[in-house]
């Protein structure tokens, strides 16, 4: 035989169980949730685009910097005209010769020096113009 107290609790539980479906969610709840999910998705995409743009721009700028630096390092560093002028002036003073002649000698010396990559370019340019 069932304990009357347990029987009573069982009746209460049944009563409460029956009332479970009495409350229902509002008609707008589903639409509201879907709308908010969609809104968040759009906002996230916008952020992704923004962050992507910033990352892309930074990468391109960094690459340009690196490539520029490499270019500067790779470019031939020959003597400049002012170097030759300076040498010619010094030579003219020391040897007591005319400045034009001293410049000619400095240029000859420069061309004669073997293994100096910077001397080749003027030659090749010269050859190109002679042709």
């Amino acid at each position: 035989m069932l304990d009357p107290l347990n029987q009573h609790h069982g009746d209460i539980e049944n009563l409460i169980r029956d009332a479970g479906d009495y409350v229902r969610p509002g008609d707008q709840l589903r639409a509201r949730i879907l709308e908010q999910v969609d809104e968040r998705r759009q906002r996230r995409r916008l952020w992704q685009r923004l962050v992507g743009g910033v990352v892309f721009t930074t990468t391109v700028a960094w690459l340009l910097l690196v490539v520029g630096q490499i270019g500067v390092q790779v470019a031939p560093h020959g003597r400049s005209a002012s170097d030759l002028h300076e040498q010619a002036s010094r030579r003219a003073n020391i040897e007591g010769i005319g400045w034009e002649w001293a410049l000619t000698e400095v240029i000859y010396d420069w061309r004669r020096r073997p293994g100096d990559s910077s001397t080749r370019q003027p030659n090749s340019q010269l050859e190109g113009t002679q042709r």
């Binding site: 479970g20 229902r24 709840l29 908010q36």
Partner: peptide, 28 residues
């Protein structure tokens, strides 16, 4: 799940509008 979740949240908040807001926040 919305029916069960709203029912549960309503017993905590004691107000169905607040319960629906809670369910919405959780599902989002």
């Amino acid at each position: 799940t919305s029916l069960r979740l709203v029912r549960y949240a309503t017993t905590i908040t004691r107000n169905q509008h607040d319960a629906e807001d809670a369910v919405q926040a959780a599902i989002v």
